[in-house]
Deep mutational scan, measured.
Amino acid sequence: AEEIWQQSVIGDYLARFKNDRVKALKAMEMTWNNMEKKEKLMWIKKAAED
């Protein structure tokens, strides 16, 4: 689920960090860890469908 979420937001994060992939990935990891369980559930369901 986290991978699907990352694939959907990586472009936004890379743009925000001027294509600094290391910073973008760290920010994504922090965002994922801070997400509410119900927000993650949507992505977990999406992962299950694929």
Rank of each mutant, 00 (worst) to 15 (best):
I10R: 05
Q6K: 10
E2I: 12
D50T: 13
N19W: 07
E3V: 13
E2G: 04
M42I: 15
M35Q: 01
L41K: 08
K38C: 15
E36G: 13
E39N: 04
R21W: 14
S8Y: 12
D20Y: 01
K46P: 04
K38W: 13
A27D: 04
W5Q: 00
A1H: 04
N19A: 06
Q6E: 03
D50H: 13
E36I: 04
E36M: 03
M30G: 06
K46D: 04
A48G: 09
W5A: 00
G11P: 06
L41C: 15
N34A: 13
W32S: 00
D50E: 14
I4M: 15
I10K: 05
A24E: 00
E36Y: 03
R16L: 14
W43C: 02
K37W: 15
D12K: 07
K40D: 01
K38R: 10
N34S: 09
A27M: 10
W32M: 00
A15C: 13
V22E: 14
K26H: 14
K40A: 03
D20A: 02
D12P: 03
M35R: 00
F17E: 06
A15I: 13
N19H: 10
K18E: 14
I44A: 09
M28R: 00
L25R: 06
E3W: 14
V9I: 05
E49S: 08
L14V: 04
D50P: 08
M35A: 02
A47K: 03
T31A: 15
K45E: 15
D50R: 05
A24N: 01
E29A: 11
A1G: 11
N33E: 12
N33M: 11
S8C: 08
D20H: 04
M28S: 02
W32C: 01
E29Q: 13
M35I: 02
N33D: 10
A24D: 00
Y13C: 02
E3S: 13
E2C: 12
K45V: 11
E49I: 10
E29P: 00
N19T: 03
Q7K: 13
R16V: 11
D50Y: 12
N33G: 06
Q6G: 10
K37H: 15
A27G: 04
K38A: 13
Y13M: 06
M35T: 01
A47Q: 05
A15T: 13
Q6H: 09
E2K: 14
L14D: 02
V22I: 12
D20M: 02
A48T: 07
L14H: 02
M28F: 01
S8A: 11
K46G: 04
K40S: 01
K23G: 13
W43M: 02
D50Q: 14
E49R: 05
D20W: 01
N33W: 09
A47V: 08
Q7I: 09
E36R: 04
E49P: 05
M35Y: 02
S8P: 00
A24R: 01
L25T: 11
G11C: 11
E3H: 11
A48R: 10
R21I: 13
K38Q: 13
M35K: 02
N34D: 07
D50M: 15
E39Q: 05
S8T: 10
M28E: 00
E49N: 09
E3N: 10
Q6M: 14
A1E: 05
K18T: 08
E2L: 14
N33I: 13
Y13R: 01
E29V: 07
N34C: 12
R16N: 08
A1W: 08
A24F: 02
E39D: 10
D50N: 08
M42N: 09
D12R: 07
W32T: 00
K45F: 07
L14S: 02
E39S: 03
A1T: 03
E49C: 06
R16T: 12
E2D: 05
F17W: 11
T31C: 08
R16I: 14
L41R: 05
W32K: 00
A15N: 05
V9N: 04
A47I: 06
E2A: 10
K18H: 15
N33R: 08
I10H: 04
T31S: 09
N34W: 04
R16M: 14
W32F: 02
N33K: 11
R21G: 09
A24P: 00
R21A: 08
K37M: 15
